[in-house]
Design a protein around this nucleic acid. Structure first.
Length: 612
DNA sequence: CATTGATTAATT
DNA sequence: AATTAACC
C-alpha cells in the first residue's frame, strides 16, 4: 500500500462494496475535493479531521514541584507507603511507581519525597503535614484538581474554535477540524473556489498541497522504512493543528509550569496512542500513511478500551498480543465471540475510531470521597466516624465548587462499602436541595444509607472500604429554585436549561406525524445513527394510535435492523466473510448475547450485607 | 505483577 | 437503584 498511488474511491468508506486487500488499511489517502473543504459539518466522516490528545507529564509530581518551587530535581509523590508519581528527573534513576520507597531512596540519595495532602482529624482543611497516618488521615487530591482546571482553562482560552473534552485530571482531547479548516482557507484562499476548467466542479480533487515542514514542532511517527509518501492535504491539516497545539503547550509551560505531551492524528484513539510516542514535553504527529506501521506491532492492550477485560478476552481467545496478530481474524469470527463490540474492535485495529470529541461541562457530574481501611471496620457503629470524615470532604468540595457556580446541586448521595475482597455494595438516596450543604446534612444521609447497608447483619463484619459520593451534579432546575428562593436574582440557570431544550429538539418535518407533543415522544420515534448519521424514524403507521411503550419497542426493532445493515456491509467488505454470522437475525444475536452474559463467572455466594 | 483514590458511562 | 467496566 505504501507505494500505491492515491486511491480514488469517492463516496464514504462505508458505501463501497469492494473487497479489502492488505487487511484493511484501505482509507488512508482519500480523495479530497473542493466540496470537502467547503462543507462545514462532515463530523467524523471529514477527510480532514484532526484530533489531538494532550496530557501533562507526571502531573501530580509536577504539581508538587510548582507548589514547592522546585526545578529539575528528582521528586516522587507518596500516598501512604506507595509512590504514586515520579517526575522525569527521578525516572532517570530508574525509579518507577510500584517501587518501595526504600528502593527509590537507594537509587537516588537526594530524592525529594512529598506526601499528598491529607485531611487530619481536628483540621478544617487538607494540608501537607510532617507526619501522616493512614489510620487517622484521609488523602486529598484537591490541589491537583484545581491545577488541572487551570490547565484546561488555558487550553480553552488559547484554542478558540477547538472542541475540547476533558478526559481525566491530566488529559484532554481536542478536535481541531474546524479551526484548521479556517486556517487552511486563510493560508490557501485558492481552495475556496474550484477552477472554471475543473472537470467536476466542486467535486474535483484539490491541487497538490504545498511543500511544508512537518517536523518543526513535532516528532513525525515514521511509516515503513524506505517508503516515501507524498504530502497530502490531511498532512497539512495535521501540521497546522501541531502549530496551534505547540503554541498553547509552550504557553502553559511558561505560565503554569506544567510540561505536556500531545499526539495529533485523525481520530481520538490514534491521538492518544501517538501522545505516548515521545515524552516528556513533546508532541507527535501520526500521518495517515504511518498508521499501519505504527499500529501493527502495537500490543493491542495499550489501545484505549482494550486495556481491560475486553483486551484480556481477545488476548486469551486468540493467544496473541499485537494488532497485527488480530488483523486476519474475520469480522464474523469476532462477532461470534464479542457480539456488538465486534465492529468497533475490528475498526480500531484498522485505525478507525468514530468517537467524537465532545465538550463536557467544566463541573464533574460526580464527586467521590473514598477511604480504604487496613484496619477494617468490625462494628456497624464504627462506620459513622469515617462517614463523617468523607462527608466533611464532600461538603468542602461542593461548597468550593459552588463559589464558581452557585447553582450546583447533587441529585443523589451514594454510599459504597466493601467487605473483605468482595465487590463493593452500594445504597443511594435522593439528596435534598439545600443552599447550605453542611457536614451534618451529608453525614446524616450517609449514616442512613450505612444502616440500610450493614444494619441488620449478624455476626462479624470486616469493612475494608467506605466511600461516599454525590452523583448527578448539575445546575438546579426551576422547580428547586422556588423552594427557597435562592436563585431569584440570577435566572441564568433556567435560561441555559431552555437553550439546552432547544438543542434537543428534533426536526419535526421528518416525523410526519402530529400526535407528537414533547421531546420524550420525539426521541421515542426517531434516532440518528451515530455510525452513518442517517436519521431513522418510524412510519406514521407505526406510531399513530400506539402507546409510548409500543413505539419504543418498534424503534428498538428498527435500531437492531439498522445495526444489522451495518454489520452486513462490514462483512461484505471482508476477504472471507463468515456465512453463518451474516445470516443470523438480530433476535438470534441478542439471544446469543444473553447466553454469553449468563455464562459469565458466577458472583460470590455469601451476601454479607442486607439487601432491602 | 501491583495500590489507592478517583471519574464516567453503560447495563440491568 | 445497583452494579460493572474502563481509565488514570
Amino acid at each position: 500500500m505504501a507505494t500505491s498511488p492515491p486511491v480514488s474511491r469517492g463516496k464514504s468508506t462505508w458505501k463501497g462494496k469492494e473487497k479489502v486487500t492488505e487487511q484493511g488499511y484501505d482509507d488512508l489517502n482519500p480523495t479530497i475535493t473542493y466540496r470537502h473543504i467547503l462543507q462545514q459539518n462532515l463530523g467524523i466522516r471529514d477527510p480532514l479531521r484532526v484530533v489531538a490528545l494532550c496530557d501533562s507529564d507526571a502531573f501530580y509530581a509536577a504539581c508538587e514541584m510548582v507548589r514547592l518551587g522546585v526545578k529539575d530535581k528528582p521528586l516522587v509523590v507518596l500516598q501512604w507507603e506507595g509512590i504514586i508519581a515520579v517526575n522525569y528527573p527521578a525516572r532517570e534513576y530508574g525509579i518507577t511507581r510500584f517501587h518501595k520507597l526504600s528502593d527509590a531512596k537507594e537509587r537516588c540519595a537526594d530524592l525529594m519525597i512529598v506526601h499528598v495532602a491529607t485531611y487530619k482529624e481536628g483540621e478544617a482543611e487538607p494540608g501537607y503535614w510532617d507526619e501522616v497516618d493512614s489510620r487517622t488521615h484521609k488523602v486529598s487530591l484537591d490541589y491537583y484538581r484545581r491545577e488541572s482546571a487551570k490547565v484546561l482553562t488555558m487550553f480553552k482560552e488559547g484554542l478558540p474554535d477547538v472542541e475540547i473534552e476533558k478526559a481525566s485530571i491530566d488529559e484532554a482531547f481536542m478536535d481541531f477540524t474546524k479551526a484548521v479548516r479556517q486556517e487552511l482557507l486563510r493560508r490557501y484562499p485558492y481552495l475556496a473556489t474550484a477552477p472554471s476548467d475543473a472537470p467536476n466542479g466542486l467535486d474535483s480533487p484539490l491541487p497538490a498541497p504545498p511543500s511544508i515542514e512537518l517536523a518543526t514542532y513535532s516528532h513525525v511517527i515514521p511509516a515503513e522504512d524506505g517508503s516515501v509518501h507524498q504530502l497530502t492535504w490531511h498532512d497539512v491539516a495535521l501540521s497546522i493543528a501541531a502549530e496551534m497545539m505547540n503554541k498553547v503547550r509552550v504557553d502553559i509551560a511558561e505560565k503554569l509550569g506544567y510540561t505536556t505531551s500531545a499526539g495529533i492524528a485523525r481520530n481520538k484513539f490514534l491521538a492518544k496512542l501517538s501522545a505516548s510516542y515521545k515524552k516528556p514535553y513533546s508532541q507527535s504527529i501520526l500521518r495517515n500513511c504511518a498508521i499501519p506501521n505504527y499500529l501493527k506491532p502495537m500490543p493491542f492492550q495499550k489501545i484505549r478500551f482494550l486495556g481491560g477485560k475486553l483486551g484480556e478476552a481477545l488476548a486469551k481467545e486468540y493467544d496473541v498480543s499485537t494488532v497485527q496478530d488480530l488483523l486476519h481474524v474475520s469480522l464474523g469470527k469476532f462477532f461470534l465471540k464479542f457480539g456488538e463490540n465486534a465492529i468497533w474492535v475490528y475498526e480500531l485495529l484498522r485505525g478507525i475510531d468514530r468517537n467524537e470529541v465532545k465538550e463536557k461541562s467544566i463541573v464533574n457530574k460526580s464527586m467521590l470521597a473514598s477511604k480504604n481501611l487496613q484496619k477494617p471496620i468490625t462494628k456497624a457503629s464504627d462506620g459513622q466516624h469515617w462517614i463523617r470524615v468523607l462527608a466533611a470532604e464532600l461538603a468542602l468540595r461542593l461548597n468550593d465548587a459552588r463559589k464558581e457556580n452557585f447553582h450546583l446541586w447533587p441529585k443523589t448521595v451514594v454510599l459504597h462499602a466493601r467487605q473483605g475482597y468482595e465487590v463493593s455494595r452500594s445504597k443511594q438516596a435522593p439528596f435534598p436541595f439545600s443552599r447550605e450543604v453542611t457536614v451534618d446534612l451529608i453525614a446524616n444521609a450517609g449514616n442512613k444509607l450505612w444502616t440500610e447497608l450493614v444494619g441488620n447483619h449478624t455476626g462479624s463484619m470486616k469493612v475494608t472500604n467506605v466511600s461516599l459520593a454525590f452523583t448527578g451534579i448539575g445546575v438546579a432546575e426551576e422547580g428547586q429554585q422556588n423552594i427557597d428562593g435562592f436563585f431569584r436574582a440570577g435566572g441564568q440557570a433556567s435560561k441555559r436549561l431552555r437553550e439546552n431544550d432547544a438543542d434537543m429538539q428534533e426536526p419535526d418535518e421528518l416525523l410526519g406525524n402530529n400526535d407528537v407533543h414533547n421531546e420524550r415522544d420525539i426521541s421515542a420515534i426517531s434516532f440518528a445513527c451515530s455510525r452513518c448519521r442517517k436519521r431513522i424514524a418510524l412510519s406514521s403507521a407505526q406510531t399513530t394510535g400506539k402507546t409510548h411503550e409500543e413505539k419504543v419497542q418498534a424503534l428498538d426493532a428498527l435500531k437492531a435492523e439498522h445495526e444489522d445493515f451495518h454489520f452486513a456491509q462490514a462483512v461484505a467488505r471482508e476477504v472471507e466473510p463468515d456465512p453463518d454470522t451474516q445470516t443470523r437475525s438480530s433476535t438470534e444475536r441478542s439471544v446469543a448475547k444473553k447466553k454469553r452474559k449468563k455464562e459469565a463467572p458466577a458472583k460470590g455466594i455469601e451476601k454479607f450485607f442486607s439487601r432491602k
